[in-house]
C-alpha cells in the first residue's frame, strides 16, 4: 500500500520531467542505475550480516572504501597507469586486481568479526552495535592516516567511450561495466546461497541458529563465511566505484554505507533480492534528486533518501520484499 503510494508520488513528479526532455531523463536513469548497482553491492553485505547475527554492521560502508583504497597500490604494482591504451591485458589485470581485493577484503572482514563481534555474541545487542561504530572509526582512521583527509585521485583506466542512444543520451562503457559487474556478482551470490552446501548452511544459520547447530553446522564458520562474502561484494563495489568516479576519500563509506543500509531496509532487511532492488531504487532516487527532478533539488538529495528510510521503517518495517520474521 504505502509502497504503491511512494511509487505513485515518484511517477507523478517524474512524468512531466521525462516528457519535457526525455534524453536527459534517460541519462539520469542510467546514472541512477550505475550508482544503484554499487549501493546494491554494499547493501547485500548489510543484509546478509543482519540476517545471520542481527547486527547492523555500521563498519560495512568502510569495508567498501577499504576495497577501493587497497586496489590503488595494486594498480601501481601491476604497472597500470592512466593514458595506456586499454587492451585485453588491462582488462585482465583489472579483473585480477579486483579478485585480489575481494579476497583480502573478505579476509579483513572475517578478522574483524573474529576479534570485535564474536566475543560479544551473547552480549546485549547494543554492545556489538556500538562496537561496529567503533570499528568504522578505526577503519576510517587507518585510511585517513594512509591517504589523508582530502579526495584521492583514482586512476582512470576504463575507456570513456560512450554509445549514443536517443538525442543527447548515451551509455558509457563505464556504466556498462559497473552494471554488468553487479549483475554477475548478484547472480553468482544467488547461485551460491541457493545451491551450495555452505550457502544452505548459511541460510539455515540465519533462520534458526540453534537448529542449524543441531544439524552439525559449525555456526562460527557460516558466520565467518557471511562476513567474507559481504566484504567480497563490498570490495568489488569499492573497486568499480573508483574506476567509475575516479575519486575516493577515507570517509566515503560513511554516506555510501548509510545509503546502502537504507537500500537494505527498503528491500526488507535479511532479503538478498530486496537489497539488490533497494540499491537500484536508492541509486535512482538519488540521481533524480541530484538532477533537480524532485522538489528541493540537488541540495536536499540526501534528505529524500533518508525520508524514504523513515517512511519504510514507520509504515512497512519488513520492507519491499521482507518476509514476516517471527519475533524471537
Amino acid at each position: 500500500m504505502f509502497l504503491a503510494a511512494i511509487f505513485l508520488i515518484l511517477a507523478v513528479v517524474l512524468t512531466p520531467k521525462a516528457a519535457t526532455n526525455f534524453p536527459f531523463f534517460l541519462q539520469i536513469v542510467i546514472y541512477g542505475i550505475a550508482d544503484g548497482a554499487i549501493f546494491a553491492l554494499i547493501a547485500l553485505g548489510y543484509t546478509m550480516v543482519y540476517g545471520i547475527i542481527e547486527l547492523i554492521n555500521f563498519a560495512h560502508g568502510d569495508i567498501f572504501t577499504l576495497g577501493a583504497f587497497m586496489s590503488m597500490p595494486l594498480i601501481s604494482a601491476f604497472g597500470l597507469s592512466e593514458g595506456q591504451s586499454s587492451g585485453v591485458v588491462v582488462w585482465l589485470l583489472l579483473l585480477v586486481i579486483t579478485v585480489i581485493v575481494m579476497v583480502i577484503n573478505g579476509g579483513v572482514n572475517v578478522l574483524i568479526e573474529r576479534v570485535a563481534y564474536r566475543p560479544l555474541r551473547h552480549a546485549p545487542r547494543l554492545a556489538p552495535l556500538i562496537t561496529a561504530v567503533g570499528v568504522s572509526f578505526i577503519l576510517e582512521g587507518i585510511m585517513y592516516v594512509w591517504r589523508g583527509a582530502s579526495n584521492v585521485h583514482y586512476p582512470d583506466l576504463l575507456p570513456d567511450t560512450r554509445i549514443p542512444l536517443i538525442g543527447s543520451a548515451s551509455l558509457g562503457v563505464k556504466d556498462i561495466i559497473v552494471i554488468v559487474t553487479a549483475i554477475v556478482l548478484v547472480v553468482l551470490l544467488t547461485i551460491f546461497i541457493g545451491g551450495t552446501r555452505l550457502g544452505k548452511a548459511m541460510r539455515a544459520t540465519a533462520q534458526d541458529r540453534e537448529a542449524a547447530q543441531l544439524m552439525g553446522i559449525d555456526i562460527n564458520r557460516t558466520i565467518s563465511a557471511t562476513f567474507f562474502i559481504g566484504a567480497v561484494l563490498a570490495g568489488a563495489g569499492g573497486v568499480i566505484f573508483g574506476l567509475y568516479f575516479n575519486s575516493v576519500r577515507f570517509d566515503l563509506g560513511f554516506e555510501a554505507g548509510l545509503f546502502a543500509f537504507t537500500a537494505a531496509v527498503f528491500g526488507g532487511i535479511g532479503n538478498l533480492q530486496g537489497a539488490a532492488l533497494g540499491g537500484l531504487f536508492i541509486g535512482l532516487v538519488q540521481a533524480f534528486a541530484t538532477a533537480n527532478f524532485l522538489p528541493g533539488g540537488a541540495a536536499v538529495s540526501d534528505i529524500w533518501v533518508f525520508m524514504i528510510l523513515i517512511i519504510v521503517l514507520v509504515f512497512r518495517p519488513t520492507g519491499l520484499l521482507g518476509m514476516q520474521v517471527p519475533e524471537k
Partner: peptide, 22 residues
Amino acid sequence: PDRVVMRGIGHAPEGRRVFARM
C-alpha cells in the same frame, strides 16, 4: 552441538524448529 551430532546424537528439538523458509 555440531561436534555432538558428528559423534552420533540426533536431536529433534522442542517446537520442531524446521527451517521455515526452506
